[in-house]
Structure formats: structure tokens, C-alpha cells
């Protein structure tokens, strides 16, 4: 009886912990793969939920949920998908990471002010070249997205 109670308590604790959202956690490969899967599923509502606002798209700071929602919807409408074969590469945040998005004061400030140190740059193939996803933290199985840019030249 005591064993069952312990198992139930453990499950409850795990459930509570897994439902907690944090922006500061290094995303694991599995979570990144799940994120790409989420994007490719076309669930733009969930994508917006997993978008940290403000978000960076190229050199543009997206300051409204509505704009992030519009962007994910527009990409889905355009039929844009990411390579789901888990062949992405992951790079931790470095001193020059912001330059991938742009060499401006706004981009530099965005990284300094809004991007946690736990963030990673994920390079993933798209239909027209490689794209960068700036991911950090976790909510359920997915990391949050802080930035998106590409195709890389």
C-alpha cells in the first residue's frame, strides 16, 4: 500500500515538475527534435505559446504575441518546413552569436537583455538552405524559441 502511495506521489511530483516552465535550461537534443516536430506539425497556436516575447527574427525584434502568431501562421501557409531527420547541429551561445542575426545595436542589446545564457543556436536544414533557431528553457517537452533567422548565405 505504502509503495503505491510512493509511486503516486512520485508521478504527481514529476507531472508538476514537467509542467513547470523555465526559460533557463539548456535544451537537450530530444527537446530540440520535439520542437522541430512541433513546428512541422503546423500547430501555430502551440508555436506562439512556445515563443518568448520579445523574439528576434533576423534583425527584427518582435514585441507582440500577435506578430509572432502572424509570422508562424504565414510560414505554415507558405508551406515552409524544417528537416525533421534530427540532423541539426547545436552550438552553445558565444560572444559572437548575435552576429548571425545582425550586427546592430538592437540585436546586440536583445542578446544581452533577453537571451538566457542557457540558449543554444540550432542549425537546421530548410527547403531553401540552413536556418538558425535560438532556443532555451523548457515547458513540457519543448524548449522556448527566442530567435529565428535564415536562410544562411
Amino acid at each position: 500500500m505504502k509503495k503505491i502511495a510512493n509511486v503516486i506521489i512520485s508521478i504527481v511530483i514529476l507531472l508538476v515538475l514537467s509542467s513547470c516552465a523555465t526559460m533557463k535550461a539548456v535544451p537537450k537534443d530530444r527537446a530540440i527534435a520535439k520542437f522541430i516536430e512541433l513546428y512541422n506539425s503546423g500547430d501555430t497556436v502551440r508555436m506562439t505559446e512556445m515563443t518568448s516575447i520579445p523574439m528576434l527574427i533576423d534583425g527584427e525584434i518582435v514585441a507582440r504575441n500577435t506578430d509572432a502568431d502572424f509570422f508562424w501562421n504565414s510560414l505554415a501557409k507558405a508551406g515552409f518546413t524544417l528537416d525533421g531527420s534530427e540532423s541539426f547541429t547545436v552550438e552553445p551561445l558565444g560572444a559572437n552569436s548575435s552576429l548571425v542575426f545582425g550586427d546592430t545595436m538592437e540585436v546586440g542589446t536583445f542578446f544581452a537583455k533577453y537571451v538566457p545564457e542557457t540558449a543554444v543556436l540550432v542549425r537546421v536544414k530548410g527547403p531553401v538552405g540552413d536556418f538558425i533557431l535560438l532556443l532555451s528553457g523548457r515547458k513540457g517537452p519543448y524548449p522556448f524559441i527566442f530567435g529565428f533567422t535564415g536562410p544562411l548565405l
Partner: peptide, 13 residues
């Protein structure tokens, strides 16, 4: 910025 995002999404393919 709004126009830029729209154009990016429209022409991403």
C-alpha cells in the same frame, strides 16, 4: 518591422 516579417514569410520559399 511588420512589413519585413510579412515579406519574409511570403517569400521564404
Amino acid at each position: 518591422g511588420g512589413l519585413y516579417l510579412d515579406m519574409k514569410a511570403r517569400y521564404i520559399m
